[in-house]
Every structure is written in C-alpha cells, then in structure tokens.
C-alpha cells in the first residue's frame, strides 16, 4: 500500500488535481494507494503503508519548505520514500541540505551520474522549479542538469528525491520506485 502525500498548501485548491492525481493514476495501476495531506501525516499515520511518495506543488507554493519540522518522521520512518520536486526539496532540508536559486521550467536534459534503480543514461524531463536542493553529505547525487542536482538518494536509507516531475513525461521513474519496493502481502 502506497501513501501519496499532498504537498500543496490550502492557498492553492487546484494543486491536488495538478500535482497529486497524476501520481495516483500511475501508482494505483501497480498497487493500492491512499492520499493524505502533509498536515495530516505523522509517525502514527504511516502505519499500514509500505512506501511513501511526496508530491510536487505549484511554482508559487513553497509552503512545505518553511515547515520542515512537520516532516521529521522522514528520518526514522524506515520506509522507502520518493520525493518529487517540493517533495525532494523538503526531504533534503529535513536531512540538513539547503536551497539555492535555480530556475528551470520546461523540458530539461539531465544526466545520470550514478547507477540506480530509477533511471539511467541522459534523458529529458519536465522541470518546474525556481530553487534547487544542495543536499547534505548524507545523500549521493544520482542525476544532474547543466544547472543543478536533479536526483538524490540517501546513502543508508531507501529515501530518494527527484527535482523533475516524473508524472509528466517519465512515469516509468514512479513505476520503478513502486516495483522496486513491492511488498507481496500474499506471503
């Protein structure tokens, strides 16, 4: 069972359909999934979920970046996590990274710099961000564009982040994350 975390602020009532539902439509073809708003997620509410996907949000919506204290559960949840755009940025901040200005809007070429389970080679992605993450030493970089880090993985945890929006043109990235951590509940 997948938990998709809605990272959109109440200020933008359209964020759910634009940034969360496209992920759900990919995920639910592989496994059952639920959606919870980030304000409702805590250590206890994660029970019953095998893996977690943090959604992206609109360009003007950076609210979760100011509320990293709400995401401390990321450090010890022990579950695979994939953060998308704002989701990746939030993960990075929780683990001690910081942000820098980096505007990329539209199709952007990124290059894989470390072999991983989500993607390989050089490929084009849909980017929608004004800031990029400078990750802490707890993370290794998996991919980068000409301008910034585009994908990370925690060195000792199954915690991944992608700055691009895989739900737009690279849905296989979401599918591979889900498949890699598939839990067969029939056993």
């Amino acid at each position: 069972m997948i938990l998709v975390v809605d990272m959109n602020s109440a200020e933008n009532p359209f964020g759910f359909s634009e940034f969360v539902l496209p992920i759900v439509s990919i995920a639910e073809k592989l496994e059952k999934c639920d959606v919870n708003h980030y304000l409702e997620v805590n250590e206890k509410s994660l029970n019953g979920y095998d893996k977690i996907i943090l959604s992206g949000s609109a360009l003007k919506n950076t609210v979760t970046l100011d509320q990293t204290a709400r995401f401390t559960w990321l450090k010890d949840c022990g579950k695979p996590v994939l953060g998308i755009c704002a989701g990746m940025q939030t993960i990075g901040l929780v683990f001690g990274g910081h942000m820098e200005k980096c505007r990329e809007i539209g199709m952007t070429e990124i290059a894989t710099v470390k072999a991983n389970i989500l993607f390989s080679s050089t490929f084009k992605v849909y980017a929608l961000h004004n800031y990029a993450l400078v990750p802490s030493a707890e993370f290794e970089m998996l991919a980068e564009s000409a301008n910034c880090v585009h994908a990370i993985k925690h060195k000792h945890k199954a915690v991944y982040g992608v700055l691009f929006h895989p739900e737009v043109r690279n849905k296989e990235v979401v599918e591979r994350f889900i498949s890699a951590f598939h839990v067969d509940r029939r056993i």
Binding site: F14, E18, P22, L59, R103, N130, E167, V168
Partner: peptide, 16 residues
Amino acid sequence: QICNRLGVWCVNPLWK
C-alpha cells in the same frame, strides 16, 4: 514561465 515572471499562480485543472 510567464506567470512566474508576473508573480501569479498558473492553474491547470485538466493537467494529465
């Protein structure tokens, strides 16, 4: 890009 420059929300209710 245009909305970002002008500082307004860009809303796409039918996206994907």
